[in-house]
């Protein structure tokens, strides 16, 4: 079962082909739903890198969503192409994360998590105060985007890059070193790993992914204000999705974002009043019964099955 095996390659290729076809063949509703799932996928992978792999659980990565969003909005307003504006937003967020990381990544555990939450709120306050650039709480209105297709394809590319990048990271020495930092930072350092540098790189790439999503979504929504740029709920959503699927795994965020995204949509459509209650109960059950997330639990189950199967086959072989 090597990665190069055609059996692992084909389902992925088919899935990608279907996803590319969606905006051209599916209804507007399905396209819009898939589009928001793709955004969740990208965000969950961005969060997974710094929090799932490196162990620095952040409740404020959404800060970079807003940085990407505002950069795109301001540049688009000035006449720049929205995609270029989003890419510049990604670069700015990445550089900003290097500077902020130098300070924030000295904090550990809950202090880092809450410090990031505070940072995101600070960003929102600053965005509200810088009226001349951001138009304050009135927000920036952009010309409505006439076609979903470019936005959809941009988010699809981002989500795919995040998935493939994580798959590569997972097998790389760089990835192993991030995991080592998560497991025991002092021991990692005693092995010669310059932990500060590794953490900052992970934090910065995470910021780039999340900012790119923010830029594209801002163009899609055609509006940004401090509340839509830095929604605390969105940060919670990316945490929950990655944790549900399995943080620090290649497929966890994909499973988490698509499953919870679809469940949320179905609940919201069918039980608008009870949506949040049911959603909360589901999350509670998950945390109680599969705290490691879906992907690790499933693969453990399959491995146990596989082992049992081998034993059974072995016995049969022995009898024959």
């Amino acid at each position: 079962m090597k990665a190069s095996s055609p059996f692992r390659f084909w389902p992925g290729a088919v899935a990608v082909a279907i996803l590319v076809a969606v905006p051209f063949v599916a209804s507007g509703y399905i396209t819009a739903l898939t589009l928001s799932l793709l955004m969740y996928v990208a965000l969950a992978y961005g969060w997974n890198l710094i929090s799932g792999y490196t162990g620095y659980v952040s409740f404020g990565q959404v800060a970079f969503f807003g940085v990407g969003g505002y950069t795109c909005a301001i540049l688009a307003k000035a006449g720049m192409n929205w995609l270029v504006g989003s890419l510049i937003g990604g670069v700015i967020a990445g550089l900003l994360a290097v500077v902020l990381g130098l300070v924030m990544l000295r904090l550990k555990g809950a202090y880092f998590a809450i410090g990031m939450l505070g940072l995101a709120q600070l960003f929102a306050a600053v965005a509200g105060a810088l009226k001349r650039v951001t138009n304050g709480s009135t927000g920036i209105f952009l010309p409505p985007s006439l076609s979903l297709v470019p936005v959809y394809l941009a988010l699809l590319s981002l989500a795919l890059t995040a998935v493939v990048g994580t798959a590569i990271l997972h097998r790389s020495t760089f990835g192993l070193r991030l995991m080592a930092i998560r497991e025991d930072e002092e021991a990692a350092e005693s092995l010669g790993i310059h932990t500060t540098v590794y953490k900052i790189i992970a934090f910065s790439i995470s910021a780039v992914v999340i900012a790119l999503a923010g830029g594209v979504m801002t163009w899609y929504i055609s509006f940004i204000d401090p509340q839509s740029a830095f929604p605390a709920a969105l940060n919670l959503t990316m945490v929950i999705m990655a944790v549900f699927g399995g943080p620090g795994t290649v497929w966890g965020p994909l499973v988490g974002a698509s499953t919870l995204g679809i469940i949320a949509e179905l609940l919201w459509a069918n039980y608008p009043g009870l949506y949040l209650v049911i959603y909360g109960v589901i999350l509670l059950l998950i945390v109680l019964y599969i705290p490691q997330g879906v992907v690790p639990s499933l693969s453990k189950l399959l491995r146990r099955r596989g082992a049992a199967e081998t034993v059974r086959k072995g016995r049969r072989g022995a009898v024959a």
């Binding site: 192993l176 995991m179 080592a180 497991e183 025991d184 002092e186 021991a187 990692a188 620090g248």
Partner: peptide, 8 residues
């Protein structure tokens, strides 16, 4: 006090 990377 042993410090291995437990989940790896």
């Amino acid at each position: 006090l042993t410090r291995v990377f437990k989940s790896m």
